[in-house]
Simulated scan of single mutants.
Amino acid sequence: MAPTILLLSLLVHLLSPAQSIDPAVEDLINKNADFGARLYRAVASRTDSNVVLSPFSLSAGMLALLSATNGPTRDQLLQGLTLTGLDPETIPDQFQTLKNLVLPGQLSSNLQTAMAVFPSQNLQVSESYQQLVQTKFDGVVQSLSYNVPSEAVGTINRWVQDQMGDEFQDLLSTMDPQTQLLIATAARLQTQFDPPFNSSFTQDERFYVDRYHVVMVPMMFRADKYFLAYDGLVKAGVLKLPMADGAAMLVVLPDDGVDLTTVEEEVTFEKIQTWIQQLKKTKLEVQLPRFLLERSYTLKDVLQTLDIVTVFQDDADISNMGEIRGAKLSQVHHKSVVTVNENLADVSISGSRLFSTPPPRLTFNRPFVFIIYQEATRGLLFMGRVTNPTEK
């Protein structure tokens, strides 16, 4: 009997979640993902080009801002960030826990983020707020003089380059000399798929940007068992590509002839969760283009469409930042870089499984959406759209 009990106990342990998540932290993860999906839809609706942004990185900056606000400004910001019902006083500690859960081990080496709050030098920022930003949100507070805009631009660009590397040289190009407060966030991810694609199987293939525009792209290939779902309501297939670091990518391909924007309009936090739950393992040949996306955004106008307005106005209350009266947020800057390529170049190592009969092939040869999340928590890391893989 004892060996049976031991075996049952072991099975229970193996089938239980790897880590229990505090309900309040889980609520913050879900609400951040909800806001991230809303923000993505707002950004994507303004362009036909490639899109990539990091809701996770942006949430650090927006929550640091939330901690600086008070009164009606804070109330509206809570609502705009879909955080209604959460206690603003406990959010910094919850975000710190969230960050440790979402960025475990190897993922933290493949995913790099940076966040800074840049108040004008004439604003007296308290030491306690500076410590809060540093310890809870892993960011910095750096006072700047905006009287000479070119010098302020140079300072911020040097900061992001020092934090993130040479790919992040130009976060800003211009600056309003009336600027009082800026939030800057940045994120970069090098995907590491597991199972990996092998570069020896990559070959140039056609990618149909639209019905009139075709480009040749390096198309990666792998045959394996993958998790796949189909959403008949939006007419799109959803493929899961696991990563070696505990993250995963959902790649959403509309049916041929279905406009990508009609799919994007339906991408909500609830829809993403539904897709994940509907995934089923199947034998599949996958062709995915190699791509590098690099995008910068000024988000003031977009955030205002999401009902985050008061903090940008003259009656904004950011008094929790220090002895500050009459100051407002001027702009939120964000830059993301995502690299998707082969992780295996050794031709002696198999880059695909061998099946007795060739399985169906799924080829991403037209515009698609991708969603990168941390599997254990389902924390949303990146969202993007690939319209043309040959463009950044």
Rank of each mutant, 00 (worst) to 15 (best):
E265D: 13
E342Y: 05
L6D: 10
M164F: 06
T310N: 07
P196H: 13
Q112S: 13
L189T: 09
I308P: 01
Q190A: 13
S49I: 04
G322M: 01
Q331D: 09
Q192Y: 15
D87I: 10
G384E: 00
D48I: 11
V267D: 03
P389G: 01
K280P: 07
S20N: 14
M62L: 04
E127H: 08
N198H: 09
L132K: 04
L279M: 00
V214I: 07
V337N: 07
Y226F: 09
Q96T: 12
T298A: 13
L189D: 02
S200C: 12
I349V: 11
N110R: 14
T298D: 14
A60Q: 06
R74M: 02
R188Q: 14
V141I: 03
T84G: 12
K328F: 01
P177N: 11
L83R: 01
T73A: 00
L65N: 01
V102P: 13
N122E: 09
S143M: 12
L299I: 05
L233D: 15
R211L: 14
R295V: 08
V258A: 13
G246C: 01
D22F: 07
S67M: 04
K328S: 04
K392A: 08
P254I: 05
F291R: 00
R361Q: 04
M175P: 01
T155V: 15
L123R: 01
P17N: 05
P104W: 10
L253D: 08
M243V: 04
R385V: 01
K136Y: 08
V347S: 14
Q94C: 11
L189C: 09
T305W: 09
K280M: 08
L107I: 06
V51I: 02
S59W: 03
L293M: 03
Q121A: 15
G237T: 05
G246V: 00
P218D: 11
I324P: 00
I21F: 06
Q287V: 11
E151Y: 14
L306P: 08
L107Q: 09
F56L: 02
Q124N: 13
D93P: 13
T363D: 04
L15I: 09
P3C: 07
G257C: 08
F201S: 14
N100R: 15
V340T: 04
Y373K: 03
L250E: 05
Q313C: 10
K271H: 05
N157I: 13
P242S: 07
Q192D: 15
A223T: 14
L11W: 14
A223S: 13
N110H: 08
